[in-house]
Amino acid sequence: MRNDGPRNILRRSLQVRHVDAGSCNGCESELAAITGPVYDAQRYGLDIVASPRHADVLTVSGPVTRQMAEALGRTHAAVGQPRLVVSVGDCAAGRCPFRGSYAAGEGVAAVLPVDAHIPGCPPAPAEIVQHLRALMRGPGPGQTAGQRG
């Protein structure tokens, strides 16, 4: 399985870089809240980082607009291996009211390999934290549930 490697390595900490690929700003508002005082995701080893070079996970929101496709691809390429891609919100999963228009795309999976999805319009901060933590807990090769980090 493609994800076994990164999930095994990234068990204790997950550094997140986010790309807005055409959201309504709802997903950004909720993502920004996860490192705030209420949700405080850093206590789980989760953090938002400024550079894709520092990131383990690329989160992407929006349907991937025509104008953001190139920037998204380059940001993804700049994330070191192993890396994960997480689509955030319904638009990113292709359930966007603007899907397929002359300017909007079909969702993140149409342009990048997606490892996990966080559903919601927008997903609430607690749900985002929960999904990102689940990524850290995913069993690696040869692990059993009891060995999860």
Partner: peptide, 11 residues
């Protein structure tokens, strides 16, 4: 700007 242009009006 308009990197996030989604074609809302056409839709």
């Amino acid at each position: 700007l308009f990197q996030k242009h989604r074609g809302v009006e056409k839709i």
